[in-house]
Amino acid sequence: MEFEELKKIWDAQNNQPLYVINEKAMYNHILSRKKQAHHITNISELLIIFVNIVSGIFVLGMNFFKQSGNLSLYILSAWMFGSALFMLVNRIRRIKGNNQFDRSMSDDLSYAVSLATYQVRISQIMRWNILPIGVFTLLGLWEGGKPIWIAIIVLLFFALTYYAGGWEHTIYKRKKRELEILQKKLDNES
């Protein structure tokens, strides 16, 4: 069979709709998606910014009002504010790129790869970020003369967070690799 005949079979479906649209459900879906933060990146970014700012304020406030003069805790709160600011700047850059619809498939894949690279980088940074935060927290506990069992619980908490961060990082890395393969397929002249 020649390609023209395949095309005739294909064209015939234009007069026979394959599906029926439930319009009420469709508009409900559009409305619900407009209201919710639909992207996982969006949620994790906002969460990281919020957690870092609140924790930074809490640590700073506690240290300041107790007048303990604990330097590690001042450094820790500054580190948290810095992390929140870093995330905020990257978030603004990402959102600017999200509202473009006139991209070609190649450009769109490049954007998806750059977004995935950003997610990989952020998840890696946030994972490594746990280490200085953990160290400063433990130093703060030690300077404050807290019992050892509190330090052990805090250490366990940071270890778990570090492990979970690694799992998230692997997911983003896999997604990035898959997108790069697609991009390569598109660009390859074969």
């Binding site: 395949l6 294909w10 015939a12 479906q13 394959l18 599906y19 029926v20 649209i21 459900a25 879906h29």
Partner: peptide, 19 residues
């Protein structure tokens, strides 16, 4: 689950299905 899309009841051409 509230589905937006439902398959049409029209008979699909076997050749189109194959394609």
């Amino acid at each position: 689950v509230q589905h937006v899309l439902q398959e049409s009841r029209m008979q699909t051409d076997e050749r189109l299905r194959w394609l």
